[in-house]
Design a protein around this nucleic acid. Structure first.
Length: 169
DNA sequence: TTAGTGATATCC
DNA sequence: GATATCACTAAA
């Protein structure tokens, strides 16, 4: 079953663990279909979260985070890597979930490379999109949590939050 | 361990 | 206009 707007329209701390174990589907321009199970996500929650891009204020780049749930936020990291996020929660509230890894493709940039996602997906939505969407195949998994990674700059308080969700095999 | 890479924000 | 920063990866 394909996930709709109501799935994303919750707090990112609820959506992030729920997204683990779901299937991300990407239809290439060639018609080829790629299906991958999501194995790792991270939650980024509002202006108070120093690790969230929107914590420094609303800018043209972080504008996406304020949009409605289901919207795709893609941005370039270290000049080479595309990272993909999905917006969650209420409109005008900057929060989202970073999709870090899928089965067989651990690492946020390896994922987007495999799925051929780049900035042309930025500002689109998982809801009603025919190139990329997320499915629930009904399977349930055990989830474990951990600290987020790569955000030491946000300070100990935020770097220590257990807002990383990993599929527990 | 380090090079590679470029958009963004922040400082002149 | 210039520079510093960055939610990473692959090669060594």
């Amino acid at each position: 079953m394909r996930l709709g707007e109501d799935f994303f329209h919750r707090d990112c701390l609820e959506v992030a663990p729920d997204l683990v174990g779901k299937i991300i589907v990407r239809i290439l321009d060639t018609g080829e279909e790629i299906r991958l199970r999501i194995t790792e996500t991270e939650a980024y929650r509002g202006t108070e979260d120093k690790a969230c891009h929107a914590s420094k204020g609303r800018t043209p780049r972080t504008e996406i985070l304020y949009r409605e749930s289901g919207v795709i936020y893609v941005y370039l990291c270290y000049g080479i890597h595309w990272l993909i996020n999905v917006i969650t929660g209420e409109k005008e509230q900057p929060q989202g979930v970073l999709i870090r890894a899928c089965e067989g493709f651990e690492g946020p940039a390896r994922l987007t490379k495999k799925l051929q996602v780049d900035k042309s997906f930025n500002n689109e939505s998982f809801v009603g999109n025919r190139r990329i969407y997320i499915c629930d195949d009904g399977e349930k998994f055990k989830i474990k949590t951990d600290k987020r990674v790569g955000i030491d700059y946000a300070g100990e308080e935020w770097a220590a939050k257990p807002w990383r969700f990993i599929l527990d095999k």
